[in-house]
């Protein structure tokens, strides 16, 4: 087995993840935010690795 197989499996896993997710829920392009967050006037709503909202004091 070569690294090509491993890379192909990794890419297939990504494709499978996206396909399964799209089968469960579809994004709404008409709900899309502005291209850039900076200057949009909208508060950030993305999830992040840092202190989550659920943790008191954060």
């Amino acid at each position: 087995m070569t690294r090509r197989t491993i890379a192909a499996v990794a890419c297939a896993m990504v494709a499978g993840l996206i396909a399964l997710d799209l089968a469960a829920v579809r994004p709404n392009p008409y709900d899309a935010p502005a291209l850039l967050a900076l200057g949009s006037g909208a508060a950030p709503v993305g999830g992040f690795c840092g202190a989550p909202a659920s943790v008191p004091g954060s």
Binding site: D21, L22, P27, G46, P52, A53, S54
Partner: peptide, 20 residues
Amino acid sequence: FWAAPINAERLGASILTDYT
């Protein structure tokens, strides 16, 4: 963690709308 509004929303939304 997953009941927090931001994370609950991410869980119900497409990963194509999740930045990370």
